[in-house]
Design a protein around this nucleic acid. Structure first.
Length: 465
RNA sequence: GGCGCCAUAGCCAAGUGGUAAGGCAAGGGUCUGCAAAACCCUCAUUCCCCAGUCCAAAUCUGGGUGGCGCCUCCA
């Protein structure tokens, strides 16, 4: 399979270090607020990567961090800690805030069928590993101490900027006035911060009480679980210029060699063709989607319809289209499931569909193309169990619950309001008496109340809008 | 100012040298008392513009135009 490596800017054949296994690290959430659908798109991408690797028979050793400390509001190494700020506002401890939002996040990814990485690593559980990492860098001469912390000396690391194509010299000229005059270079970043007495989260270290810099946590935790060198590192594109650049600097400085073979980045989700921002009120969450009557998997389907390296524009119309499409796709899956066992399709046909699918997913996770194959199968004239089995196999990658959704075609209807039920019965009676006028009036009335009626051969179906 | 990305039907979106996947919407049909839902059919001689390379270009090259991202925290 081929994957696009941000470092080399081209698709490369994926060759795991260890035959049959993949070691992966993914930058996880900072748990101080609800994750919005833009955040979640990146984890859908991470999940697709997991599923495609598994589909190809690889076992996964995958680590994702939970950042519950040390991530400042501004990355200029100044300002408040995000966790602390939220905690203060809510009058809770940072630990309580982290625990709450971690729980919500885990629930969100479960609803989106995003597989849980084998290791979920909380930053606060790995302070010692981080301190050791920083010590190592200081011993090698890459870290220096100032009055407020330990900083990484980017000028000492000759590869700085290779991931994003940044030019340090150019950066100096364009750099904003740096408030921290003790830093040797504006791009130098904190490895460890000395904590003021009122800082709630702090730990003892060789440099006194303090807390870790943001970037060090990923370097330290990936090393603990995956070893010095591992296969794949994922994250959002926004991490390329600073966070991942700094991770590379830290790890390579300490190890003397690259720690990561493939860097993969998920593109941003736009809303109404623009950025998501709190001021525009468009940072939607999973519960917002549900509140508007859409299933989380409809959003997943939407994400699957665009390449992870392209920007995807979210609109409510688009989500509606995704929901309709997903529902119809499941109808197609069901049709194959209900096919007569005696119906056979040409094995060459099945093999050809399967090949198209595998070629697509192995070409840098081209899920939109793979989805096209799924549609061609779903709408294929001859319905057969063999094609149903193939669709289920494909769903190991899509994660759209083909089996589950097709399994319970007639889900138990939620109990209707007695008043609604009475009207429905009244209409049925009118229909029996061929009193179409009354029947239609009742249907219109229910429609205006938000209930849509569908007369199926199995009886009336009431759909709440 | 620096770095980078993108431009394919009404909308979303594959295709990156061999003659335009797929979805939504729309139009027509089947079904239905009529609808709805579902299913079937139709739906880009053409890929922002101009020039070039080639037997052949949406795909490569040059120029132009129009969007966008990052260089501040962000997935």
């Amino acid at each position: 399979m081929k994957l696009y490596n941000t470092l080399t800017r081209q698709k490369e054949e994926f060759k795991p270090m260890e035959e049959g296994a993949a070691k992966i690290y993914s930058c996880g959430p900072t748990v101080y607020q609800y994750a919005h659908i833009g955040n979640l798109r990146t984890y859908v991408f991470m999940d697709i990567l997991r599923r495609v690797l598994k589909y190809n028979g690889l076992t996964l050793k995958h680590v994702m961090n939970i950042t519950d400390v040390g991530h400042l509001v501004s990355d200029a190494d100044e300002g408040e800690d995000k966790m602390m700020k939220t905690a203060k506002q809510a009058n809770k401890s940072p630990w309580e805030i982290a625990e709450y939002y971690t729980g919500v996040f885990m629930n969100d990814i479960a609803e989106l069928n995003i597989g849980k990485p084998e290791y979920i690593a909380k930053a606060t559980d790995h302070i010692n590993e981080m301190i050791e990492f920083v010590q190592g860098l200081v011993e090698k001469g890459y870290g220096y101490e100032t009055s407020d912390g330990i900083y990484f000396d980017v000028m000492k690391f000759k590869g700085y900027g290779k991931l994003s194509g940044l030019d340090l010299e150019g950066q100096i000229a364009g750099a904003r006035v740096d408030v921290n005059e003790e830093k040797r270079h504006p791009a130098d970043f904190a490895l460890w911060k000395k904590a003021p007495r009122e800082h709630i989260m702090q730990w003892s270290s060789p440099w006194g009480m303090g807390y870790p810099g943001w970037h060090i946590e990923c370097s330290a935790m990936s090393r603990k679980y995956l070893g010095d060198v591992f296969d794949i590192h994922t994250g959002g594109v926004d991490h390329i210029p600073v966070h991942h650049e700094n991770e590379i600097a830290q790890s390579e400085a300490l190890l003397g060699k690259p720690a990561v073979h493939y860097w993969l980045h998920g593109e941003f989700l736009l809303v109404d063709n623009g950025k998501m921002s709190k001021s525009l009120g468009n940072t939607y969450t999973v519960s917002d989607l549900k509140k508007n009557g859409y299933s989380p998997l409809a959003y997943r389907y939407m994400c699957l319809n665009a390449n992870y390296r392209s920007k995807l524009n979210f609109t409510w119309d688009g989500l509606k289209a995704a929901q309709v499409a997903l529902d119809r796709l499941l109808e197609g899956v069901l049709a194959h499931k209900n096919a007569d066992v005696s119906v056979k399709v040409d094995e060459g046909l099945t093999a050809s569909f399967r090949k198209d699918f595998e070629d697509a997913i192995n070409d840098d996770l081209n899920i939109p193309r793979a989805m096209g194959v799924a549609w061609n199968i779903a709408r294929y004239g001859t319905k057969s169990r063999a094609l149903y089995d193939l669709l289920l196999k494909m769903d190991e990658v899509f994660g759209l619950d083909f089996a589950k959704a097709a399994g319970k075609q007639a889900p138990e209807e939620p109990a209707l309001d007695p008043e609604i039920e009475a009207l429905v019965n009244q209409r049925q009676q009118a229909r029996k008496e061929k009193n179409w006028k009354l029947a239609d009036e009742i249907r219109d009335k229910l429609g205006s109340m938000g209930y849509q009626l569908e007369d199926t051969p199995q009886g009336v179906k009431v759909v709440q809008k």
